[in-house]
Each structure stands twice: as structure tokens, then as C-alpha cells.
Design a binder for these strands. Structure first.
Lengths: 152, 152
DNA sequence: GAACATTCAATTGTACACAATTGAATTTTG
DNA sequence: CAAAATTCAATTGTGTACAATTGAATGTTC
């Protein structure tokens, strides 16, 4: 009748994955009120960051950068288009590809977004150095996981 | 006609938030093939971790632990119930609360999940110490964000 | 103790994620 | 060059996330 306690390694608080999952959602939540005035969701903001860096990417190229597939990007980009921030156009050279370009409004939005990173940095209560270290550890982790695919 | 380049602080690769977002999704993706034989999604796995630790929690208590609201948990718990892993029952003491209890099958699943954390640790290619450090940094970050609410 | 307020889980509606499939366009091959 | 294979974005279907609302149950107050 005695029930075994759960083994330590299955405790929620021991899991790196949950720490990651919780932190990611918390940070996204912190962005929400900052992005709401711009009319952007957090994933839409990430797409805009990429487009502000480099114009005329295809859906595939955007997906490679953000690790998202067309199932996620296509509807998201349609919403950005409906909001008047981007244009979507089949490429003449290769009709399979759809090129995403900023509209004037889309480019102009960059100015409004310009102080978001600083604002976030303040709220995270981390030094610039701590932020960089943590960011680079996470990037290293992600790179590691993409290099070693799931061997069956 | 000259277009200004995007300022450095708006570059995608500079963002801690994207590093977090990408890492979280990558890790979740790594769990997927391990959880599939158990018939669990990753959020469902997190719920099971909590229930294996402590039985008879309410939806609210589960939500407090996982930082999820009833809009997410109610349908998720219905799916776990449909899979025969949990029971959902209104509390007699307070009919507003719904208590979640493991079924025999739900408890038994713990044995099958038992080697998942070790398997993941191997794939993450981090030392136990590195994992703990990173995990604790992320927990600290999350705690920080929950303490300082969005002052308008 | 009846009006009022609060606390629950559930519901509604919008927006991701992602696996799997589709179908058109292009590339490769025999 | 024509058939087969590949590469795209789009679509379909399932499962989260989360804000906002609903409605029942419980607490509080006068």
C-alpha cells in the first residue's frame, strides 16, 4: 500500500527543460505590453527583426533564420501583410519561392521598436555581461542540438 | 535613397529572448521522439511530472506550478483523461475546484518515463554541473520577472 | 441573511508550433 | 527531352498559449 516517491531525476524543479520553457514564456510575456502598441505579437516581432536586417528574403530563408516552417510562417506573414507591414510576392526567377518585402509602414515601424531592447534589458535586471553570457550559452545549446540529430 | 542599416541592438542574434525561444523549442523537439512512445506531448509530460510528485492537486494548483491557466490546462487535462491517465473530479468541500488524480495507468507510466532525464542529459552534451548552473540561472531569471510586474 | 464581491474551471476567440500532405515549379536523370 | 525526383509555399489537423468572458460556488458585508 506504500507508494514509492517519485525519483529525484523526475522532479519538475530538477528539469533544465522546464526552466527553459518557463523562462521563455516569461520573457515573451514581458514583451507583450511593449509590442502591443506596435500591433505585433512576439513571433511577428522576430520576423520583423529579420526583415529589418535583410530585405527580400523568401519564406524558406526566414524559416531557416527563425527555425520555423511554412505552416507557422505562412499564416503569420499573411497577418503581417493584412496589417500593411509586408508584401508577399512570387519570385519571377523561381515561381516556387515567395519573397517577403517590407512596406514603407513596415520599415517605419523599426523606429518605434528601437527602444524595446533597452527597455527589456532594464526589466531583466541582468548586467549586459550576464545577458551576453546567458545568450551565448543558449545559442551554444541550440547549435549543439541541431548538430546531433535524433539518432534512432 | 540610402537606407539606414538596422541598429545593432535590433539584430536578431543579439537578442537574449530569441536565444531563449529557440533553445526552448529545440529542447522540446528533442523530447518529442522520447515522449511519443508514451503517448504524451511535452506540456502533458510536464503535467505528469507534477502529478507524479504530488497527487490530488486542483487545476489552479497545477497552473501555479507550471505557470499555465485553465484555458491551457482544461483541454490538456481532458486529453490526459481521455487517454486514461488521470481522473478529474469536482471537490466535495468546494465545488468550484476540480481535483486531478492519477489513474493506475497514469502512475504506472512513471516507470516508462524514468530514463528520459538521463537520456536527455546525454543528448544535451552538457556536464551535470553546466546543466545545473544554466537551469538555476534561468530559474533566477524567471523569478525575477515574476517579482517585478509590468509597471505601466 | 440577502446583496455584493471574489474565486474557481470552463469556454471563446486569436495566434502560434509542427507533423503530414498537397500541388505547382524546377532539377535531375536516363 | 521526357519521366522521375526534388523543392517550394500552402494547407490540414492537432495541440498548446493566453486574454477575456461566463457562470456556478463560495466569501464578505452590512
Amino acid at each position: 500500500m506504500e507508494r514509492k516517491p517519485t525519483p529525484d531525476h523526475l522532479l519538475l524543479d530538477r528539469q533544465l527543460c522546464f526552466a527553459l520553457y518557463a523562462a521563455s514564456r516569461s520573457v515573451t510575456g514581458l514583451y507583450r505590453p511593449l509590442l502591443e502598441p506596435l500591433g505585433l505579437t512576439y513571433p511577428q516581432y522576430l520576423v520583423m527583426l529579420v526583415l529589418w536586417e535583410q530585405e527580400g528574403l523568401t519564406v524558406r530563408e526566414l524559416g531557416a533564420r527563425l527555425q520555423l516552417d511554412s505552416g507557422t510562417l505562412t499564416p503569420l506573414l499573411k497577418r503581417l501583410q493584412a496589417a500593411g507591414l509586408v508584401d508577399r510576392r512570387r519570385r519571377a526567377e523561381d515561381e516556387r519561392e515567395v519573397e517577403i518585402r517590407l512596406t514603407e509602414a513596415g520599415l517605419a515601424l523599426r523606429e518605434q521598436a528601437s527602444d524595446i531592447p533597452e527597455c527589456m534589458a532594464q526589466r531583466l535586471q541582468l548586467s549586459l555581461e550576464q545577458m551576453q553570457t546567458l545568450r551565448d550559452e543558449l545559442k551554444q545549446l541550440t547549435r549543439q542540438l541541431q548538430l546531433s540529430p535524433t539518432e534512432e
